[in-house]
Amino acid sequence: MSTTVREHTTPEQQSTEPVATPARGTATRADATALHAGRGTTYGMVRECLRVQAFARPRTRFSRFLGMSPLHPEARNAYEAALDELAVREELQKLGSEWTVLSGVPIGAHDDDVDHIVLGPGGIFSISVKHAADATVWVGGRSAVVGDQPVDFVRRAQSEGASAARSLSNAAGGPVQITPLLVVSRPASLTLRDPGVAVVAAKGLATWLRRQRRVHSPEAVAYYAMVAAEPDTWNLEPALVEDTLRDLQRFDHLRHDVEAAAVRRRALRVASGAGLLAALAGGRTAASSHLRALRPAGARAPR
């Protein structure tokens, strides 16, 4: 396996770095994420949720009035995991203009992809996102355990980083160092014991990246971003980009409907509670009036 190591050189030591000005229109901003549609796991839960959701029955007018969720029961787990995927994307969009984000970058010949490749002054990172679903996570060396289940998170992150480094190095015309980064989404707890890769919780990922010591000059970052944005660097199929964008738009509509239904249910519960309180208050008032009407003239009200 080719090595994918962390880069610890200073800008003055980087005499082999290429220097070039990016062509007009190349992706060099993280707030306008360059979306590369991969063939494997990136946004996989979005796709899985939409696949199962296709079997859901349309809601009736009455079910909409009641705020019934449009989610197919078997799509709920995939929906929650998809929200985790999009939360990482939203976290990366917090990075400044010095950073470039590529998502779903295809690597190898086995329908794999890197969830995200991030390029900036603090280095180039291949990000492998794993969903913990509120479970405890332990990572030490090349081992990882979620709950009580061993998983191969570290090995996969290292392998993806090595493959991404090979592709980018070939396209850049020289060795490019990429740091594999394991991002854990929604862990109940995260315990690290000298892990074989950098491990970060999804919440706070952007802050962690911005705090990394500068290892690339602005010119080098611009050059690597320009090379990484080329579809030929990753053998990217343009049709897949459109497919992924379409899936994300469909999921956004579904998310809107799910959240709107939840708001409707809460409003009905509040209205029902208010109505019950009003009915109880009205009942007490009516009972009190009835007792007063029955009380003999001159009788004192009970204390």
Rank of each mutant, 00 (worst) to 15 (best):
G282M: 09
D111G: 09
G140E: 13
T41C: 02
V151C: 03
S63H: 12
L95K: 05
A188S: 15
E259N: 11
A27N: 04
E91L: 03
A228R: 01
M45D: 14
R303N: 07
H216I: 01
I124E: 00
E17F: 10
P175N: 09
A220N: 10
S126I: 11
L268M: 13
P231A: 05
P187S: 08
T4F: 05
A278E: 03
R284Y: 14
D113I: 02
P70T: 08
V146D: 01
G25F: 12
V105G: 00
F153A: 01
R214E: 14
L83R: 15
P73Q: 06
P11W: 09
A278D: 03
P187Y: 10
A228C: 11
V114L: 00
A171V: 09
L268A: 07
A293Y: 14
Q177L: 11
E17Q: 06
A172S: 15
V151H: 03
A144N: 03
A220W: 07
L268H: 14
L168V: 09
S288G: 10
D113V: 00
L276I: 13
L92E: 08
P195R: 05
S69N: 03
V146H: 04
E12A: 14
L291N: 06
R186I: 00
H216N: 04
D113S: 07
V129R: 01
D243T: 13
R284L: 15
R61H: 11
R166A: 12
T285W: 14
D84S: 14
S103L: 08
G38S: 03
G104R: 00
L95E: 04
A286N: 07
F62Y: 13
E242T: 08
S159E: 13
N170I: 09
V176K: 02
R303G: 07
E91T: 04
G44H: 07
C49N: 04
L205D: 02
G120R: 02
L294W: 13
R51C: 03
I117D: 00
G140N: 13
T60G: 14
N235Y: 10
D194E: 13
S288V: 09
H253W: 11
G122T: 13
A32C: 05
L182A: 03
G174C: 11
G44M: 11
G204Q: 05
A133R: 12
V5Q: 07
W138R: 10
F251I: 02
D152G: 06
A297N: 07
R156K: 15
S2E: 10
V263E: 15
Y43L: 08
G275D: 05
E230S: 05
R266W: 12
A20Q: 08
E74R: 15
G108M: 11
L182F: 06
T9V: 09
M68S: 08
A201W: 00
R264K: 15
P106K: 02
S159T: 12
L291Q: 15
A157N: 06
T26E: 11
E90Y: 12
R264T: 15
D31P: 00
L245P: 00
S272Y: 09
